[in-house]
C-alpha cells in the first residue's frame, strides 16, 4: 500500500464520520490507522495516581480563595485611601473655616507660644507707657521702673533665643 495525499485526505474525512465513498486503498488505509490507534491507545493509557485529584483540587481551592481575597484587599485599600483623602481635604478647607476667631485667639493664648507672645506684648505696652510718662515729666520713679521693665523684657527674650545667634534684643541694642 502506497497511499497518496488524496487517499489520506479522504480516509481522514471518513474516519471523522463523513459519509463518503472510499477506494479499496483508502479503505485499507483507514482500517490500518484505526487498528493501530486502538492498539497504541490501550498502551498509552496511564492510570491517575491515588491522591492526585485531591491534591489538584486542593490547589484549585487555594487559588480560588486567593483570587476572591485579592479584590477585597483592593477595595479595603481604596476605602482607607478615600478616608484619609477626605480627612485631609476637611482639614485643609472646611475644618479651618469651622473655627471661630474668638476660639482661635483663646486657643492661641492657651498654647505655650501664645502665652509667651502675650506676656511679651504686655511688657512692651507697659514699657511704651512708661516711656511716654517719662517724656511728659510726670513725678514718678519712672526711670527705675522703665529700667526694670527693660531688664525683664531682655531676660524674657534671652530665655527664648538660640544661644548661638545674637538675640533680637542684642540686635536691637546694637542698632541704636
Amino acid at each position: 500500500m502506497n497511499p497518496m495525499q488524496e487517499d489520506y485526505e479522504r480516509a481522514g474525512r471518513w474516519l471523522d464520520g463523513e459519509e463518503i465513498d472510499l477506494t479499496p486503498t483508502q479503505l485499507a488505509l483507514a482500517g490500518e490507522i484505526a487498528a493501530d490507534a486502538a492498539k497504541v491507545g490501550r498502551a498509552l493509557e496511564v492510570p491517575l495516581p491515588g491522591g492526585a485529584l485531591h491534591r489538584v483540587s486542593a490547589r484549585l481551592k487555594r487559588a480560588r480563595r486567593r483570587g476572591r481575597a485579592r479584590p477585597m484587599r483592593w477595595v479595603a485599600a481604596a476605602a482607607a485611601a478615600a478616608v484619609v483623602g477626605v480627612g485631609l481635604l476637611a482639614l485643609l478647607t472646611g475644618g479651618r473655616n469651622r473655627i471661630e476667631p474668638a476660639e482661635y485667639v483663646e486657643w492661641f493664648l492657651q498654647s505655650p507660644s501664645g502665652e509667651l507672645d502675650a506676656r511679651a506684648a504686655l511688657l512692651a505696652d507697659e514699657l511704651a507707657e512708661y516711656q511716654v510718662q517719662l517724656t511728659l515729666g510726670e513725678e514718678w520713679p519712672v526711670e527705675v521702673t522703665v529700667k526694670g521693665l527693660e531688664q525683664q523684657l531682655g531676660e524674657f527674650i534671652l530665655e527664648e533665643a538660640d544661644p548661638a545667634e545674637p538675640s533680637a534684643w542684642e540686635q536691637w541694642e546694637e542698632s541704636l
Binding site: P3, Q5, E6, D7, Y8, E9, A11, G12, R13, L15, D16, L29, E32, I33, D36, A37, K39, V40, A43
Partner: peptide, 16 residues
C-alpha cells in the same frame, strides 16, 4: 487533513 493523517499513520506505525 491529509497531512495530519499521514503523520499520524507514520507515528502509529512506529509506536506499534
Amino acid at each position: 487533513i491529509g497531512t495530519v493523517l499521514a503523520k499520524v499513520h507514520r507515528a502509529l506505525k512506529a509506536l506499534r
